[in-house]
C-alpha cells in the first residue's frame, strides 16, 4: 500500500488555514439549529453502520448529540436521520454566511496555497492512473468556495466542469451536464453522510468505468481527534456525522463498488489543532502534554511528519476506481 505524507515547514508568520472567528460563527449557527432539532438518543450500545460490529461505545457528546466509536473499525458516527441532515444543509443562515463576501474572500486568502497543492495532487495522480491529465470531464461535489471552483474550472485539467450538491450552485451552473466523468471530486462530503455507501453508489453512477474518484475527509483515527476526544472543537453536528477510520474508508468504498487505489494521510494540522486546545487534553495524557510543553519546533515538526507517515493524521486523501463489472 502506498503511504504518502506531505511536509510543509510553515513559518510562524504564515496565516493559519482556519479563521477562528468564522469557525465560531459557523458553529454558533449550527448549534442553534441542532438545539432546535434534538433527537431522542439513548446511550445504549449500537451496531456500527460501517462494519456492522455489534459494539460501539459513546465517544463524545456535542450539544447533547452523542457520537459513537466502533470498537472494531474505529469509525466515529452519530445516528441522525437523513431528513434532519437535509434540513441542516438547507439552513439559510448557514448558507448565507458561507456565501458571504467576507467568508469567501477570507477562505481564498488562507487556502490558496493548499488549493494549489490539491490541484497538483489531482494532476499527478490522474496522470499516474489514466496516463493523461488534461481536458477531462470533472464533476465536483459539494464545493462551496468560489475561488476553488474558479481554480479547478480554469485549470487545464478540465474540459467540462459540473458542480453538484453545492450551496454555490448559482455560481456555476453547467451548460451541458456531464453524464459520466473522468474525475469526480468528492472532497469533505462523506463526513456529513448518514448513509455513505448509498451516497457513493449514487456518485459512482456518474463516473466512467476507468474514471477516478478523489475523496478527502477527516478521519477518526487522527492524532488530534483521539487526543482531544470530546474536547475537539472543530467536529460538531450536523456538519460532521461520520468520521471514518482508514479501514472504515476501505469498507465503505468496497461496499459501494469501488477499488481503493491509495489512501494517504497528508494532513498537516493535527499538532496545531491540539496546541490550540491544550486544556482539552485529558489530564492523564502526560506524554502529549509533555511533548507539547517541552518539544521545540523541530521536534514538533518531526512528530507531525511521523503522524502523517504512519497514517495517523486526521485528514485522508483517497483515490478509487469503480470495480470492473
Amino acid at each position: 500500500m502506498l503511504k504518502a505524507y506531505d511536509y510543509i515547514e510553515f513559518n510562524n508568520n504564515n496565516v493559519p488555514i482556519h479563521n477562528e472567528l468564522h469557525l465560531n460563527n459557523e458553529k454558533g449557527i449550527a448549534e442553534q439549529f441542532v438545539r432546535n432539532h434534538q433527537v431522542n438518543e439513548h446511550d445504549e450500545i449500537k451496531e456500527c453502520p460501517i462494519c456492522n460490529h455489534d459494539k460501539s461505545i459513546v465517544f463524545s457528546k456535542v450539544w447533547e448529540i452523542p457520537y459513537y466509536r466502533c470498537e472494531s473499525c474505529w469509525s466515529i458516527f452519530n445516528f441522525i436521520s437523513a431528513a434532519v441532515v437535509t434540513a441542516y444543509k438547507q439552513n439559510q443562515d448557514l448558507i448565507d454566511y458561507r456565501l458571504s463576501e467576507s467568508y469567501q474572500s477570507d477562505a481564498s486568502l488562507r487556502r490558496d496555497t493548499s488549493w494549489e497543492e490539491l490541484l497538483d495532487w489531482i494532476k499527478f495522480r490522474t496522470y499516474r492512473y489514466l496516463e493523461r491529465n488534461r481536458d477531462l470531464d470533472v464533476i465536483d461535489y459539494g464545493n462551496r468556495y468560489y475561488a476553488l471552483i474558479d481554480k479547478i474550472k480554469g485549470s487545464n485539467i478540465c474540459k467540462q466542469y459540473e458542480l453538484r450538491n453545492s450551496i454555490a450552485m448559482n455560481y456555476s451552473n453547467p451548460n451541458n451536464p456531464i453524464g459520466q466523468a473522468d474525475v469526480i471530486l468528492y472532497l469533505n462530503n462523506i463526513q456529513q453522510s448518514v448513509d455513505p455507501v448509498r451516497d457513493l453508489i449514487e456518485v459512482g453512477q456518474s463516473l466512467k468505468q476507468e474514471g477516478l474518484l478523489f475523496l478527502s475527509t477527516r478521519v477518526s483515527t487522527g492524532f488530534d481527534i483521539l487526543t482531544l476526544q470530546q474536547n475537539i472543537n472543530n467536529i460538531y453536528p450536523f456538519e460532521h456525522n461520520l468520521l471514518l477510520s482508514k479501514s472504515g474508508i476501505e469498507i465503505v468504498l468496497k461496499n459501494a463498488g469501488y477499488r481503493v487505489l491509495e489512501i494517504s494521510t497528508p494532513g498537516l494540522m493535527d499538532l496545531q489543532y491540539v496546541q490550540s486546545n491544550l486544556e482539552g487534553i485529558h489530564k492523564d495524557n502526560l506524554f502529549v502534554k509533555y511533548l507539547l510543553e517541552h518539544g521545540d519546533q523541530n521536534t514538533l515538526s518531526e512528530f507531525q511528519r511521523f503522524i502523517q507517515k504512519s497514517g495517523m493524521s486526521s485528514f485522508a486523501q483517497v483515490v478509487a476506481q469503480r470495480e470492473v463489472t
Binding site: 500500500m1 503511504k3 506531505d6 510553515f10 513559518n11 504564515n14
Partner: peptide
C-alpha cells in the same frame, strides 16, 4: 516544486511531498 516566493515562509524550504513504500 520551485517556490521562489517562499510560500512556506522559508526560502529554500519548499513544501515537500513524500510517497513511501513498504512492499
Amino acid at each position: 516544486r520551485k517556490d521562489l516566493n517562499a510560500k512556506t515562509g522559508k526560502l529554500g524550504r519548499p513544501s515537500e511531498h513524500t510517497l513511501c513504500f513498504t512492499e
